[in-house]
Design a protein around this nucleic acid. Structure first.
Length: 481
RNA sequence: GGGCCGUUAGCUCAGUUGGCAGAGCAGCGCCCUUUUAAGGCGCGGGUCGACGGUUCGAGUCCGUCACGGCUCACCA
């Protein structure tokens, strides 16, 4: 709130005014430092003269001497001010500083009696006055709402949060490097589209004034990436945001980061080795181990990963005769398991409900689930030995679907038919331009999508997608306190 | 959207059967030249999420709303 005032803020503004009177401009300019705090620590030498900058996080005032901790994006470092070293005026001005202020300091390095590397300051300058206090030093910031709405405070107060996002940044860089090393080209395709395709989800609708037409934010880049396969990009990927107009939950944010990969002249089996290598590589990079997840809930990613067909998993759970049961008998058995079933559902949808509700969440160790019913997946090719199932896998880890991969459908006539007979509520609208592209000849290809936010949750052992996204969606914007 | 739980000082949290609003950290004042959760003495700080109701009296009981968390539905 703009006009809100409180004791803390008033006192800090007073301190700022007094500092200004003493010649310390409250919002300073660029400050040339010897290096980041981590570099200063790494290159520590007794009596070496250095310049450092950072935010004051704790101040231990002992009368004629002051110890304080400075923090920047790399490390924390202790500084020391002695009244005799700097003189009365400079020392008195330093006492007007508050926790959270950014300062630049210059002095020489030494080691304290207790062995801590410390900078003995002889000059300092104010770089930015903080007019509001930072969260408390012991417990950090716990209020979940404030943590998400004012993520900057969360990042300052809770080191594990900063560490998570550092790991996420690292993981994304590793994904890009890994794919680039294999010869994949990273591309960007439209996020504002005339028609949402490539997945079954409701889009966000927006309006393009210049053309006076409604458009949608993409729900998936798939149909554009396949156009690029037609255009000759035979190893291509996109790592960027998708938007889906659905509810919020522990595992859903309306905008989320998706990696989609397409490779010509291979199929779903090529995707299997690719995703396994990719995830193992990223796990090693961010966790330094193939044991990931949390301490309470560790996951071992050591290959080989289990592979099971959809039908095998169903039979394992519901009995070997499941697919021979009369529809009403099967329905009764599913209801006996506690499922509530829509009367309109076909036996295939009843079976799928069992997969989603009873089976998927029990697959903790990495599992490739293969051979899904044709009706569920319109963009994949059928298996050569059984036209009722498609040649796909869904990689499930910790009960979550991490990566679906397909042997991509490249027959334009079959693709049109499949769009037209797709089951379910969110039938994809027929994208004529996409069919035209296929009619020009798309090479056989394997394709795959990886939800990056969810992959990070699994690797780092977080239960909520809000902890994997810097600024997750919340209900309504509220001004800062 | 439904169900359950939560919202008390800047932050983290107590608050009993309905009977004067509490602690730690942070802040302010004084002391203190190698501290590091610095320490010692003292002081200030509250629309108890919002609105309404019951009651002599409500942080506490009831209703409505807002926001958050979990969960169900939708979905990846």
């Amino acid at each position: 709130m703009e006009h809100e005032s409180n004791e803390y803020r008033d006192q800090r503004i007073q301190n700022m005014k007094h500092l200004a009177e003493a010649g310390y401009a409250p919002f300073g300019k660029a400050f040339e430092r010897s290096g980041r705090l981590a570099e200063i620590r790494a290159e520590f030498e007794e009596e070496k003269r250095v310049k450092a900058a950072g935010r004051l996080i704790t101040i231990r005032d002992m009368g004629k001497s002051i110890f304080a901790d400075l923090r920047d994006g790399s490390d924390r470092f202790q500084i020391y001010l002695g009244k005799k070293d700097v003189g009365d005026a400079v020392f008195a001005a330093f006492k007007l500083l508050d926790q959270g202020d950014h300062i630049g300091v210059e002095g020489v390095l030494f080691t304290t009696r207790t062995g801590e590397a410390t900078l003995r300051v002889d000059q300092w300058t104010l770089l930015a006055k903080a007019l509001r206090p930072l969260p408390e030093k012991w417990h950090g910031l716990q209020d979940t709402e404030q943590r998400y709405r004012q993520r900057y405070l969360d990042l300052v107060a809770n080191p594990d949060v900063r560490e998570f996002f550092d790991k996420r940044i690292r993981a994304i860089r590793e994904v890009r490097g890994f794919l680039a090393d294999l010869g994949f080209a990273e591309v960007e395709t439209p996020m504002i589209q005339t028609q949402a395709g490539g997945a079954a989800a409701k889009p966000f609708v927006t309006h393009y004034n210049a053309l006076n037409m409604d458009m949608v934010l993409r729900i998936a880049p798939e149909l554009y990436l396949k156009r690029l396969l037609v255009g000759g990009f035979d190893k291509v990927f996109e790592l960027n945001r998708n938007f889906r107009n659905e509810g919020l939950s522990r595992t859903h944010n309306p905008e989320f980061t998706m990696l989609e990969i397409y490779e010509a002249y291979t199929d779903v089996r090529g995707m299997k080795t690719l995703i396994q290598d990719l995830i193992l590589h990223v796990a090693q990079a961010v966790r330094g181990s193939l044991t990931v997840g949390s301490e309470a809930n560790p996951l071992d990613l050591t290959p080989p990963w289990r592979e099971a067909t959809y039908a095998e998993l169903i039979r394992e759970r519901m009995g070997g005769d499941w697919f021979e049961l009369a529809p009403e008998v099967a329905r009764g058995k599913a209801e006996a398991e506690g499922l509530s079933l829509d009367p309109a559902w076909s036996p295939m949808l009843v079976t799928h409900e069992i997969y989603e509700k009873l089976i998927e969440k029990t697959l903790r160790q990495p599992t490739f689930v293969t051979r899904f019913p044709l009706e569920l997946i319109p963009l994949a090719k059928t298996c050569e030995d059984d036209p009722s199932v498609v040649d796909v896998f869904e990689l499930v880890i910790n009960g979550q679907e991490v990566a679906p991969a397909y042997t991509e459908q490249n027959d334009p006539l079959e693709q049109r038919k499949r769009f037209e007979t797709q089951v379910g509520d969110d039938v994809e609208k027929l994208d004529e331009d996409f069919i035209v592209a296929l009619e020009h000849g798309m090479p056989p290809a394997g394709g795959m999508g990886v939800g990056i936010d969810r992959l990070m949750m699994i690797l780092m052992g977080r239960d909520s997608i809000r902890d994997a996204i810097l600024f997750p969606q919340l209900r309504s914007p509220k001004s800062a306190p």
